[in-house]
Design a protein around this nucleic acid. Structure first.
Lengths: 230, 230
DNA sequence: GACGATAGTGCCACTGAGTGGCATAAGCGT
DNA sequence: ACGCTTATGCCACTCAGTGGCACTATCGTC
C-alpha cells in the first residue's frame, strides 16, 4: 500500500525523531516545559542528548515540530503550484488549505498540544513566531521567482496578512472544543481569510458610557469556528 | 526645563539600565551577539550579572529594549486616546505615529542597531516577535474595554494587520540609507498603512516564460521609504 | 557473506545563560 | 542619626547547548 519504501536506514532516524516529539509533547504537557529537563526526555526515549541536538536545534524546537511541518509543506506546495492569476491572498489561502490536507493522521492532535504549550511558554511561542517569520521571507523569495509581482512593499504585506489570518484561525481552532480535525481547521482558515476585507474598515465605536454594552456590530462573516463547509 | 524631577533614586537605576542597553548594542554589534558573554557586558558596565537579570529577562531582552519602549508607549497611548469612531486600522496607525513621536532623541539610532542585530540573530528576532505578539493581545484587551467592538475574529485580525504594516515599515526604514529619523519612520508607516487595501487584491501574475520579465505592476502607492510627508 | 566507506550515535568534558539565597549598601522618611 | 525600604553584590548551583572522538550500525560492492 505504501507507494514508496523509504531507505531502511532513515526510518530509524525518523522513528527516533517522532519518539522525541511525542515524548516531549507528553512530558512538557504533564510536567510543564520548564520542569522537564532534556536529560529526562532523552532518558525516556533512550537516546543521548547529543542525538537530540542533531535532530532539533533547541528544546523549544522539538515541541514546535508539528507546526513547522505544516510550514514546510506550505513552502513545498508553493514551489510546485501553478498560479492562475488569482489574487495573491487567495493563492496563499489555497496553498495553506492544501498543506493542511497534506498533513498525516495524528498531526491535528499533536499540533494542538504544541500550540497550547506555546500559549503558556513564551520561549516556545517566540521560537514558533520566528520560524513563521523566516518561512514568510522564504515564501516571498519563491513567489518573486515564480510570478510577476509588484516590487514594492505590497507583496510582503499581503503575505503577512495571510499569515495573520492563519494565526487567528489556528488560535480559534486550537481553543475550539472537541476532537481537533483537519476539516475544522480548514473551515477556520476559510473563515479567517473571508473576514480580512471587512476587518480593514472595522469601526472602533466609542463606548457611550463606561458600563458594558452587550450590543455589538453584527455585519461580519460567521464568527464561530464550526465547519460551515468541511 | 524638565517638567518633573524624577525621584532621585530611580535615576541611578535608569542610568544603569541605559548603560546596559547601549553597551550591549555596542558589544553585540562589534563582536556579535553569540560571541559576547554577559560576564563581559556586566564587567564593562561594572554591575553584577544578578543586577542585569533584575533589569532584563534575558540576554536577548536587553538588545530589544528600544523596540519594546515603542510598544510600551503604544499601549500607553492606546489607554488614554479618545477614539472618534474612525476605522480601527486608522486608529492604530495614528497611535503608532504618536508613539513614534513620543520616543526620545537617540531612540532612532538605537532601534536601528537593535533591528539589524535581530536580522542576524534568530533568538533576538524571536524574542522581539514574541513581545510584539503579547503587546497585540494586551492592546486587544484594552480596546475591548474602551470601545464597542465586534466579538468575532475581525478586531484581532485588524490589529495583526496593523502590526504587519508596522513590521514592513520598520524593516524598510531600517534598511534605508542615511541617518535614521523619526520623520522617515513616520513616512514609512503612513506608506505601509496606505498600501494595505490594495495589497489585498494584488494579483499573482504567472510568468509567461521562465526568463525574468522586468515588467511589474505599477498601480500601488509610492514604494520607496522617502519621506513624502515629514 | 565479508569489505571498506559512510553515515548516525554515545560518551565526556566544557562554556555560558539564568536562578535562589542571603548579606550588604544605598536611598528615603522622620 | 534612626530605622525602613529597595537595589545590589556575591556565591553556588542547574541545565541548555557545543566540540571532539571513539564506536556501531547501515549501505554499496565484490
Amino acid at each position: 500500500m505504501t507507494t514508496a519504501r523509504p531507505p531502511l536506514r532513515e526510518r530509524k532516524k525518523r522513528r527516533t525523531r517522532e519518539a522525541l516529539i511525542d515524548t516531549a509533547l507528553e512530558l512538557f504537557t504533564s510536567k510543564g516545559f520548564a520542569h522537564t529537563t532534556l536529560d529526562e526526555l532523552c532518558d525516556t526515549v533512550d537516546v543521548s542528548k547529543r542525538t537530540f541536538f542533531r535532530n532539533f536545534v533547541s528544546k523549544e524546537d522539538v515541541a514546535m515540530a508539528p507546526t513547522q511541518d505544516l510550514w514546510t509543506a506550505f513552502l513545498g506546495e508553493l514551489r510546485v503550484r501553478e498560479p492562475t492569476g488569482e489574487p495573491l491572498l487567495a493563492l496563499l489561502r489555497d496553498i495553506l488549505l492544501a498543506a493542511v490536507d497534506a498533513m498525516p493522521d495524528g498531526w491535528a492532535s499533536r499540533v494542538v498540544l504544541s500550540r497550547k504549550l506555546a500559549q503558556t511558554t513564551p520561549s516556545m511561542n517566540a521560537h514558533g513566531l520566528d520560524f513563521c517569520d523566516r518561512t514568510t521571507r522564504a515564501a516571498l523569495e519563491i513567489l518573486r521567482d515564480r510570478v510577476d509581482l509588484a516590487d514594492d512593499l505590497r507583496p510582503r504585506l499581503a503575505l503577512d496578512i495571510g499569515v495573520a489570518a492563519f494565526h487567528v484561525a489556528l488560535e480559534r481552532w486550537v481553543s475550539g472544543a472537541g476532537e481537533p480535525s483537519h476539516a475544522a481547521l480548514s473551515a477556520a482558515l476559510r473563515n479567517a481569510f473571508e473576514a480580512v476585507p471587512t476587518s480593514l474598515t472595522l469601526i472602533a465605536t466609542p463606548r457611550v458610557s463606561n458600563t458594558h454594552d452587550p450590543r455589538v456590530q453584527q455585519n461580519g462573516p460567521v464568527s464561530s469556528t464550526n465547519p460551515s463547509r468541511g
